[in-house]
Design a protein around this nucleic acid. Structure first.
Lengths: 346, 346
DNA sequence: CTCACTGAATGAATCGTTACACTTTTGTTT
DNA sequence: AAACAAAAGTGTAACGATTCATTCAGTGAG
């Protein structure tokens, strides 16, 4: 009736429990004929190993905990995919937690994963959790930061240089003739956001006559972007920027929707003719947007893979040097930032 | 150095392990003063309960396993969100598995979740797994089907009537004057896909002179959609359909990209003027597409919530009657299916 | 003063697996 | 044929939390 255990399998195969366990974990230590006998017993009884018991004995689970800022952002699901694939090679599983840019939720997942004695943690941190991660490490749970560098190199990390990315984006806008740039994103507490702004500001400062204004959001979502876009639409035309750099693609898509919405009396704003628009992350949907979106692409799946690789190394050798892997972002040009001249020529 | 256990807490607080456990699980059985003493011991030692040990004793975990067909499809992450929220109310967690429309991966996740002795399963099935689920139920793991009705009501389910949805979509296309509809989707083994086709075919049959052709895909992805779209573009104009009904929004977005791609020599195809396009699921991005996409919306988050509710009931009372909750789909009209006449008038 | 009762606390048994020290079998070498 | 080594298999002690029968102390009734 209830689930059979190793004991039942042992009895049925006429061997000891130790042998059953060996068949499960170290088959090479068991003679081929016994392996087969045990396996057929497992088959007929429908034995399924109790992970909790295994974990209790071994001390940690076969699961890697991954906490991301937003599951709805394809950038993070891509990272998760990469991590999953790499983890599977080592017989590990990845479970995904969504902090949703909330300190409480983030803490909740850290608790949960520590209760589960996960094999290791991958986390794209929101709050300041280095102390917490440090105490987890003391207890044998290594962690690798994702999409964020470790403040003082106490943890390994896999990230993309967001300052360079921001610079890349702004430079491109400036090169296509734009001078009044609006940066839309937030909260600034998220390092990625502030870095992108820093990079963009730097580029703007190098060009005489160029300026950048900041429209701060409380979340990086389509909705928040739409609201910011609506604000811009509501302005007098001469107060509007001629380019918008959104902190990520979701925000950009929201902004885009707002700009193109056929407001009742408002004149239509054209993208890129009136306002150019840049996103960030280069998610799949960016190329399928109303106006295909220029963006900054990041090797998301590869980041996930690399993060797991580092985690595995660190689990095997806790005293290894921490590594900071920084990937380079890439500019992807699409219609939303087509140079003005090109359009005038038409 | 290593993680403290209930024993350490007990010693530090000067009570027995049983009492510590009671503070954790049945605080009302313990005098307030002791509760406080134990809790401060927990605090100072940094005790974190070992979930594996708890699980082993209790027999099952505090986690609900959710297997979806595609994590990258926002429809499913929305369901996951709804499920998570409801589960959290009952102190449960949801872990997400991605079967990715693969029998092997689906089986792998069923194994994994059974090894973990999950509290219950929510699954959007791909292969025929009723036997498997049935044996899990015998062992105390209830399951609720998501987005798919149970073949012979052996399981509770939460779904949307896809036949009605398909009919809604096709009827709308027919009402806007289209007569040669192409259904793009697959694999047909996925019930949702075949149901949507069935509904659409029924609607077409009622209109004299209308026809429907089927372009079968091997996956419901943007990529697969793009390939199908390219095939249509490659046809002679007179062989092209005047409307396309895609089995979901991702496919529709792929098709859309292919249709609008400025092929070298090919004449541009306009949407909706030359070909109207309908998606399914009404994901956030549908409204942000190149041409805002008409679609069929489903109450995804609510589906997740309801599924968890049913699961909790069934866990509490395994012999309760199975319930089949069917939500109604809704037609969402956007530009991609604007009637021809309207456009001709312009 | 004793008995019955209640609330609080105890501690051993238990869950299913794995590791490990140990015994038995098999095979090889002299 | 003896001696030894390697291979195969055994059985039991953990792992850490929860449960539950039991003990204990205190209260009030008779």
């Amino acid at each position: 009736m209830s689930t059979p255990s190793v004991h039942d399998v042992a009895k049925s195969a006429g061997v000891s429990v130790g042998t059953v366990s060996n068949v499960l974990n170290h088959p090479h230590k068991v003679s081929p004929s016994t392996v087969e006998r045990v396996q057929s017993a497992i088959e007929t009884l429908g034995f399924i190993r109790n992970d909790a018991a295994r974990q209790l004995r071994v001390g940690h689970s076969q699961t890697i905990g991954l906490v991301v800022l937003d599951v709805r952002n394809p950038f993070f699901t891509d990272i998760a995919r990469g991590a999953e694939d790499k983890a599977a090679e080592g017989g590990l599983t990845v479970t995904l937690g969504n902090s949703d840019e909330s300190i409480e939720r983030e803490a909740k997942y850290l608790d949960l994963f520590e209760q589960q004695r996960v094999y290791g943690m991958l986390i794209s941190p929101y709050g300041d959790i280095t102390d917490r991660l440090e105490s987890m490490r003391k207890r044998g749970i290594p962690a690798v930061l994702v999409d964020r560098e470790s403040p003082n190199s106490t943890f390994s990390s896999v990230s993309v240089d967001d300052i360079v990315g921001g610079k890349l984006a702004a430079t491109h806008l400036l090169e296509t003739g734009r001078r009044r740039i609006a940066f839309v994103g937030g909260p600034m507490a998220i390092r990625q956001v502030s870095d992108r702004l820093t990079g963009a500001s730097g580029a703007v400062r190098n060009v005489p006559g160029a300026s950048i204004e900041v429209i701060e959001l409380d979340a990086l979502s389509v909705i928040a972007g739409r609201a910011a876009g609506a604000d811009i639409v509501a302005r007098a035309p001469e107060d509007r920027p001629d380019a918008i750099f959104a902190a990520n693609d979701l925000v950009a898509m929201g902004v885009l929707q707002a700009l193109l919405m056929n407001g009742s009396s408002t004149a239509v704003i054209r993208v890129p003719e009136d306002i150019a628009l840049m996103g960030y992350d280069d998610i799949d949907f960016a190329s399928a947007a109303v106006v295909p979106l220029s963006s900054i692409s990041q090797p998301s799946a590869q980041m996930g893979q690399t993060a797991v690789e580092i985690l595995l190394e660190e689990a095997a050798n806790p005293d290894a040097d921490r590594r900071q892997v920084v990937f380079a972002p890439k500019l992807v040009i699409r219609d939303s930032t087509a140079p003005r001249t090109e359009h005038l020529q038409k």
